[in-house]
Nucleic acid binder design. Structure first.
Lengths: 235, 235
DNA sequence: AAGTGGTCTAGACCACTTC
DNA sequence: AAGTGGTCTAGACCACTTT
């Protein structure tokens, strides 16, 4: 029947023993040969199980010594952040070529005075403004049509067509910032307090910054969420 | 010499071809047998290489069809959030047993009126207050010494001794909140605007919430940072 | 020397997809 | 029927750690 692969069943069994506390942090597991004998299978198969648990961060292999249960990593979180949720609309406010301020110049490693393309958008949910964002792209002569870039609502997607999208990654920072006047007018017409801001820097595999985005979240936007640590176990 | 394992070299080569755009999203890679012949090795070894790339999210295997280059996942971020950085001190303000408000009662799935242990702390950096946090733990008769819990500066660690720490995970939410009076007195003595707040809920493998923490960050705290997507490639 | 994990091979059978 | 990925085996050699 092969309802479940052997190596999956062994991994499930060992994982359960670890979670139940049968093996605890810094304990060593039986050796590969012992496990192969215990489960009545080959060494290759138990290795496959152990590699699964190693990839989950539960155990660690040390050559010549054995497999050891690892301490949990509760400080590491996974966050999903997308620009567009369902039932949301974008409205472009402005697309222009400007000389950016110090923040953008430094983020994109620009020469002083080098112009950028800026796209400013309003994000609406049920006709209420929930966010405002600005994207900055270094301006180069002969850049393809700006309209082309604007069809992408997700920030890094606009680069995917020009670069090999897999060779990009994003560095995000979340902070509290006092919005400039034109933003506070939109997002907090009365009380002009600091806002939750998500800054994103798009970087190539060669560490070259190629795009910078600022997104101001209104109080209606909702919280940003993330999950730790050994979440991958829960399946 | 075995300077590098064969399967590592093959994975590096294939990864480079993908990042360079030689294979693009939805392209299929050569089959395992073709790759084994091309690299002059066994099928098992090229499988090991391909599994590496699959774990990185670069490709995906489809039985009977082949390996296909995956689109990037730029919406997924990894965040590191630790309570204590270097050069920081904690000062306990209060440890008590109280009846919590609605927020904590709901987060911890408590019966109305069920008491909790609360620990309130001040976090200082170079003698400036940078954060304030509160931790809530359901109170049960015969709970071990509260002092025992207080030796842990990282939130989930305090449970590690009572539960099998690996069977826990944390759900985090980041938002803007108007602090209560006793917090605003500490963190923003003059301008009493909303603060960046990190809420964390500790949950067991059985989805039972067992701890709730609120951490208010002052404007001196600095930004929270995260990295996307195909970051694992950069090594 | 003995035991551990790390790598690699040649071959086998299976389940799935395509022709 | 032929090709693909998924699983598994039995055996080999290597590098490292412990005794």
């Amino acid at each position: 029947m092969m309802a479940q692969a052997i190596y999956i069943r062994i991994a499930d069994d060992l994982r359960q023993r670890i979670l139940n506390g049968e093996y605890r942090t810094d304990d060593s597991l039986p050796s590969e040969n012992e496990l192969a004998a215990a489960y009545g299978t080959s060494r290759v198969t138990v290795r496959k199980s152990l590699n699964l648990l190693e990839n989950e961060g539960l155990i660690r292999a040390r050559r010549g010594k054995g497999y050891f249960v690892q301490p949990p990593r509760h400080a590491q979180y996974t966050m999903f952040f997308v620009d567009s949720r369902r039932e949301e609309r974008f409205r472009y406010q402005e697309v222009n070529i400007v000389t950016p301020g110090r923040e953008v110049t430094e983020a994109l490693h620009l020469r002083d005075g080098q112009p950028v393309i800026v796209a400013r958008r309003i994000q609406e949910r049920e006709s209420r403004i929930v966010a405002y964002d600005e994207k900055y792209i270094p301006y180069e002569r002969g850049v393809p049509s700006i309209e082309f870039e604007l069809q992408f609502s997700e920030f890094p997607d606009m680069f995917a067509a020009r670069f090999t999208s897999l060779s990009l990654h994003t560095e995000m920072s979340i902070a509290l910032e006092a919005p400039p006047l034109h933003v506070s007018k939109l997002l907090c017409p009365e009380t002009c307090s600091p806002l939750l801001v998500v800054n994103r820097l798009i970087v190539t595999a060669e560490d070259q910054p190629i795009g910078y985005g600022k997104k101001y979240l209104s109080s209606d936007y909702g919280p940003l969420t993330a999950v730790s640590g050994n979440y991958s176990i829960r399946g």
